[in-house]
Design a protein around this nucleic acid. Structure first.
Length: 290
DNA sequence: AAGACGTGGCG
DNA sequence: TCGCCAAGTCT
């Protein structure tokens, strides 16, 4: 990018006019609120996160509040957000923050990155959005916008490459890195979408390499389609739903009725136990982890 | 390093 | 209808 500002300024101006009013973006949002939102937003649409986040923050307004609860309560109030191991990891974050960081969400990337469930993206996002840090924030939205606008490809590579990271870092403005990061993400989420991009509403359509090339179809390897019906994942979801709603010990018979195949059912239950999402009181009774 | 890991809405 | 996709992380 010879002139990063050719890309940045229009996106920043667009964001000023089109940013959604999300609670974790408001001035009164705490670093804890930002961290909670980022974990919840992993692979999960904003609309589904909103009500869970609101309930969660009212219930546990600080890491200390959550850390004082058994992990099963985090899993219970995670509801049907999906990927419930995130609830366990968020609980782990709260405990680590209490035990090792004085109850304060860390502000530097490396410390955040060491917390459970916090990878490259989330560490960069929390450091940027909660503390105004300057990092390359590479999520699926940003990767797609850069793939199109700069590389001229419809989609980014299947996994993040060094080239993508280098490009993202080159685009970080000297001032206002966090606002730039959230602005590109928002553009990817609202306009430069995966399926049917709204190029007519795009602030950088004039300089978008992909559009200028005539929107050539994606050529890379097919992205892995995720099946769900009939999988262990679906089975685990059914079993965990029973435990979540139970508010107490659940006899095995109550789990047996939600999945027909006993082999798969046993495997899924063992998986939940191994993951710490459930625990056995005895051989025949189960509950969320206390 | 490919695959596991939830769930539901949309085109 | 049904496959694709959503602010990824971990092993």
């Amino acid at each position: 990018m010879r002139e990063p500002s050719r890309l940045r300024q229009p996106v920043l101006d667009w964001y000023s006019e089109n940013a959604r009013d999300l609670p974790w973006r408001r001035p009164d949002a705490t670093p804890w609120g930002v961290l909670v939102s980022e974990i919840m937003l992993q692979q999960t649409p904003v609309a589904r996160v909103l009500p869970i986040w609101t309930d969660w923050m009212a219930r546990w307004p600080t890491p200390g509040h959550l850390a004082a609860q058994p992990p099963g309560e985090a899993v219970r109030h995670w509801g049907r957000l999906g990927y419930p191991r995130r609830a366990l990891r968020l609980h782990g974050c709260a405990q680590a923050i209490e035990a090792h960081h004085g109850g304060v969400v860390p502000s530097d990337y490396a410390t955040l990155r060491a917390l459970p469930g916090i990878g490259d993206y989330t560490a960069a996002a929390v450091a940027s959005f909660a503390y105004g840090g300057s990092h390359a924030v590479l999520d699926t939205n940003v990767r797609r916008v850069l793939a199109r606008a700069v590389q001229g490809d419809e989609y980014p590579p299947n996994s993040t490459t060094a080239a993508e990271r280098k490009l993202a870092e080159a685009l970080i403005p000297p001032l206002g890195a966090a606002r730039w990061a959230v602005a590109v993400m928002e553009l990817g989420a609202l306009v430069c979408t995966a399926r049917a991009p709204r190029c007519a509403d795009c602030p950088i359509t004039a300089q978008c390499a992909w559009r200028l090339a005539g929107k050539p179809a994606y050529e890379g390897p097919a992205r892995k389609g995720q099946t769900y019906a009939g999988t262990d994942r679906q089975c685990r979801g059914r079993l965990l739903a029973v435990l979540r709603q139970a508010h107490g010990p659940v006899p095995k018979a109550a789990l047996d009725v939600v999945w027909h195949d006993p082999v798969q059912r046993e495997r899924a239950l063992d998986g939940l136990l191994a993951d710490g999402l459930a625990e056995a009181l005895d051989g025949d009774t189960f509950q969320l982890p206390a």
